[in-house]
Design a protein around this nucleic acid. Structure first.
Lengths: 290, 290
DNA sequence: TTTATTTTTGAACTGCCTGTACAACTTTAT
DNA sequence: ATAAAGTTGTACAGGCAGTTCAAAAATAAA
């Protein structure tokens, strides 16, 4: 994407969060970004498509940052989860993404509607996956319901916190923390009462590719965590952390992980026979064998 | 309001729930209801005002029906609460009120925004009041948070139930029941952990008139329930139930309860000295003394 | 029935909006 | 220098909400 186009996206984003999407006219955007009408419709087929472009870039950045928070960390650590949620909300708030999201929901344009709905489902799906990390696969049956309810609790808490408590506004962290505490209680609740509204199968059908990928990533992550176990005993901790984190990151971020690069890193890990269990390294190697 | 105007409201309502508010043009409304543009702007100052008129009538009806469900019933009975919530959602869904509500939230018109925001707060407030009935005044401190979270849980459960589970759609009753079960657990949770985000004082400041009125109504309702206690022993149960329910209804529904009418009913209750405690009747009488 | 009053009508108008078309102009690569 | 690609701005089509107003129709009063 060329610089000029990026500039238009930036200025339009500015206008949208200040005036709202509907209330911003094409003319406003032209004046703000100093381009002509012809150029605008050369860049974007319509105002709606411009909005989609904006949200796509913002959303992609947010997802990347969020997933980076998990690299080299214990996925069962709930504090990391809190930080991830907080990050999403902060970038959301800064961009007033939520607002744009909701506003779009009522557009007459079907494409826009589809787009935003998929966005919401992606968030639910991410929560679902993280709940598997956090609370264990065995309670999986309740995690779709929990993801949905957690989203509701969080959204409403944020909304009314901003609305009713302007003077003494709690930080986002407090609201997230409070909401996560409720979530933990609801996990116990459902684990004992075994009530279920929606089966997770519904979600897994919607994201089949992601799903296999994620299961794979999870296994690798567990393997890497296992390998890190003995690391604190050595003075080379930093070095091996770097190597292991690299493998993790390459796996999570790259669309096509660089297989040979990873294999060569594993090879150098093999030289440290006392630190790393041979079996575990072999297992890790096999993940990239295909 | 004249018949013709009502007819326009009805037809416009039809169009709004089928096509959406934004997507319905004034022209559509004119054609659908067979009036001229001149007449339309004679009835309503703008399209927005028409929408407000529609929602006001629908909302008033819903509130009336909802509150009627409680007349002559035990306010601590959670099944009644479930039925009330269900009723609201059913009329909401039938009217697609929620949808219109949310769509309006992103209008450029400030008046519309204010109006819808107040609507949401009224729902929160109603939940808050009912939680006092249901779970006792002593846990009151957590009921604003709980009302907010319950609204979030319910909304999201309904939304994703409709979205993901089209084939095997759970009835509204099931979703409400499930959500209320979570609520009950969260009441216990907060009663023990004593965590609080928002103080109920914030709500009470927003609805001061209502508040005194409600406390008063609650006392009367408790008094009437007390008087009903011995009623099952008699063959005149039906008669006295009718009388007591009348007092209750007059109190809840009438803007200015007909004082003398109520007093005369109480007088006829007094004749049954074995059934009704004299003290309780005196107490009831005093409520209307002023 | 006639007259007076109120309500309704519909067309013409303002001013805003999104999106299209396109010939003239400018910048960038070859 | 020439070709290709990108940019410009105006004119235009079609749609929207809302205003104005004189003429027509319905209703009420005499």
């Amino acid at each position: 994407m060329n610089d000029r186009k990026m500039h238009v996206i930036k200025m339009a984003h500015h206008l949208f969060i200040n005036k709202g999407f509907q209330a911003t006219s094409i003319q406003d955007i032209l004046e703000e970004s100093g381009i002509s009408k012809g150029t605008f419709y050369n860049y974007f087929p319509s105002k709606n498509e411009l909005l989609i472009a904006i949200i796509k870039t913002l959303h992609a950045n947010m997802e990347k940052e969020r997933d980076e928070l998990l690299i080299g960390q214990d996925p069962t650590d709930i504090d990391i989860f809190v930080k991830q949620v907080e990050l999403q909300l902060k970038t959301n708030r800064a961009n007033k993404l939520i607002y744009l999201f909701e506003e779009m929901y009522f557009s007459n344009d079907d494409e826009l509607k589809q787009f935003i709905q998929k966005g919401h489902l992606k968030i639910i799906h991410w929560l679902y996956q993280r709940f598997i990390d956090l609370f264990g696969e065995n309670k999986k049956a309740y995690f779709l319901d929990l993801a949905i309810m957690f989203k509701g609790i969080l959204q409403q808490n944020l909304k009314y916190n901003a609305l009713l408590n302007e003077a003494n506004k709690s930080s986002i962290y407090e609201v997230v923390h409070y909401s996560v505490n409720r979530l933990v209680k609801l996990v116990d609740d459902l684990a004992t009462t075994k009530e279920q509204l929606l089966s997770p199968a519904l979600l897994e059908n919607l994201f089949p590719e992601y799903h296999n990928k994620h299961a794979f990533q999870q296994e690798v992550a567990a393997s890497i965590l296992e390998l890190k176990k003995n690391l604190h005993q050595t003075d080379q901790q930093e070095k091996y952390n770097e190597l292991l984190d690299f493998i993790h990151q390459e796996l999570v971020q790259a669309k096509v992980p660089r297989k040979f690069l990873i294999k060569s890193v594993i090879l150098s890990l093999k030289s440290e026979e006392e630190l790393f269990s041979k079996d575990e390294l072999l297992k890790l190697e096999q993940f990239f064998a295909l």
